[in-house]
């Protein structure tokens, strides 16, 4: 049970303000999710390079000389950006698999990877989570944020949203899935594994697995309506776009706003109150069982 925010910029000149705008939206959703908060931000990318976001509860030791250690194994240039409990390692795309294996071996938690996506999430109030990662200063083309009121799975970093189950893909969710255990087993038979007990991660893995099988993001989102049971509003990010889908019953709140500058999503209108030009924006609620998608 949660609060969701999302912002997709249509104009590059707004990119430096993305973090600032998203942070205010995120903090407004505190009451809906005081347990943990997270954000996926689609920022700068370098051709042929991948960014891997990792987390550690003991960052000082875990991140010390981590770039050198990974470099030694993958035999390629590796840079590291440490942000509180998270670190983003940048290295050649071709070495991503190898690098992730090394990082997992060292007991680091993989938050996600991709050309442009970085994921930051921790336990705590949204304002504190935003402050420790310096979310306000982050720039980018689009981002998705989430505040969590944990229902059945634990209040941990790994239980926080967004969930990423493939490169540059992430998902946040408001609601509660009722067939996630069955779906988790079905996906596992196909070799698709999840890292947490969280229902949302299964939703993310379902979408990634459909895309890996050749479906478009739109088709994968359509699939959630048929194959996932329960109550959900999903907001999903990809390298170039972001999508929204609600279950057919559509009880969980969802509201969207669009101007010439941006498309915004939130669980409540409150999150839009500070957005520039909101008074003249087109504001509407996504229909049930309908996929919405924006791409750059």
């Amino acid at each position: 049970m949660c609060g969701i925010v999302g912002l997709f910029l249509k104009k590059d000149e707004l990119r430096p303000q993305l973090g600032d705008m998203l942070t205010d939206m995120l903090i407004t959703m505190t009451e809906r999710g005081p347990d943990s908060a997270g954000i996926a931000i689609y920022g700068d990318e370098t051709d042929g390079m991948v960014k891997i976001t990792v987390q550690s509860d003991t960052p000082a030791e875990a991140f010390a000389d981590l770039d050198a250690a990974v470099c030694a194994v993958v035999d390629a240039p590796v840079t590291i950006k440490v942000v509180d409990t998270h670190a983003v390692l940048t290295l050649p795309e071709a070495k991503a698999k190898e690098a992730i294996a090394v990082l997992e071996d060292k007991g680091l938690r993989i938050m996600g990877s991709g050309a442009s996506m970085e994921i930051y999430k921790e336990v705590g109030l949204p304002k504190d989570v935003a402050a420790r990662f310096g979310l306000r200063a982050m720039g980018g083309s689009h981002g998705i944020g989430h505040t969590r009121m944990a229902t059945e799975s634990a209040v941990t970093t790994m239980g926080a949203h967004p969930f990423s189950t493939a490169d540059d893909q992430c998902l946040v969710h408001n609601g509660s899935l009722s067939n996630h255990n069955q779906m988790r087993r079905t996906l596992a038979k196909k070799g698709v594994f999840t890292r947490s007990e969280n229902d949302t991660e299964v939703g993310a893995a379902y979408i990634s697995s459909r895309i890996a099988d050749g479906a478009t993001l739109g088709e994968a989102l359509e699939g959630t309506i048929e194959d996932l049971d329960g109550f959900f509003t999903f907001v999903t990010g990809t390298k170039n776009g972001f999508g929204v889908v609600r279950d057919p019953i559509a009880c969980k709140p969802a509201i969207m706003a669009e101007t010439e500058d941006y498309v915004a999503f939130a669980s409540e209108y409150r999150a839009f109150a500070d957005l520039p030009g909101i008074d003249n924006a087109r504001v509407w609620e996504p229909e049930p069982a309908t996929v919405y998608f924006w791409e750059r």
């Binding site: 049970m1 949660c2 609060g3 009451e31 809906r32 999710g33 009121m149 229902t151 408001n174 609601g175 509660s176 109550f231 009880c251 969980k252 709140p253 669980s267």
Partner: peptide, 13 residues
């Protein structure tokens, strides 16, 4: 279900 809220996040309101 209640007619005008679903789940603890809405219940809080």
């Amino acid at each position: 279900r209640h007619p005008d809220w679903t789940g603890p996040d809405d219940l809080e309101i």
